[in-house]
């Protein structure tokens, strides 16, 4: 279950990034500055999330808290269509220049969700590490799952999902998925069993 969460969060981050380019294009175009903003903001979110996730993981970690970390981006995604156009339109009318405008829009729309999704990997690692003898393997497995999820998220979104549904519907769908994941996590008890890593 928890490995599946890591995989799916990895998939959703990159899927959201692909969709993010489509969210930005109507107001900010598809110039190199838009791509630069988008990618750097996602990386900033993930980087801050990794750090924060590690910090939080050392403070009485539980799968209940992890479920909250997934619930928050879930709600952000679920309500995305309610605020995204308003924010993007507002930044467009401010016209802060071809570099600052897409950067600011990316920060406003993508930083918080990518930060919370970044928390998941290190936090899960802490929850899953039962012994220092196997901690390397645990962390390696989680990294691999997260990145493999990202690959799947990228390919499936850009090759397939965008032909069957609109951008907003897909983001809302991901929100529902994250919320659905957070529910069982909330009631789950993670205990290290002997023989498991």
């Amino acid at each position: 279950m928890i490995k599946f969460v890591v995989f799916l969060c990895g998939a959703i981050v990159m899927s959201f990034e692909i969709l993010g380019s489509r969210v930005l294009a109507p107001n900010f175009g598809s110039s190199v500055f838009v791509w630069g903003s988008l990618i750097s903001v996602f990386l900033s979110g993930l980087s801050a999330g990794y750090y924060l996730g590690g910090w939080l993981a050392d403070r009485n970690p539980s799968s209940r808290k992890l479920s909250l970390m997934i619930l928050i981006p879930g709600i952000l995604f679920l309500t995305f269509p309610l605020y995204s156009a308003a924010i993007a339109d507002w930044i467009f009318t401010k016209d802060l220049g071809i570099r600052v405008s897409p950067l600011l829009a990316s920060v406003a729309l993508f930083l918080a969700p990518s930060l919370f999704l970044g928390i998941v990997s290190p936090y899960t690692a802490k929850l899953m590490i039962c012994s220092l003898h196997t901690s390397g393997r645990t962390i390696g497995t989680l990294y691999a799952l997260s990145t493999f999820g990202s690959i799947v998220g990228t390919v499936v979104t850009s090759f397939y999902l965008i032909t069957i549904a609109g951008t907003n519907a897909l983001i809302v769908g991901q929100g529902i998925l994250l919320i659905a994941l957070s529910v069982p996590l909330f009631f789950m008890k993670l205990v290290c069993r002997a023989g498991e890593n």
Partner: peptide, 15 residues
């Protein structure tokens, strides 16, 4: 872990 995959993505998209 994310760095390389973004870099690759960037290269594929832009160059």
């Amino acid at each position: 872990m994310a760095k390389t995959r973004y870099l690759l993505f960037f290269i594929v998209i832009l160059f």
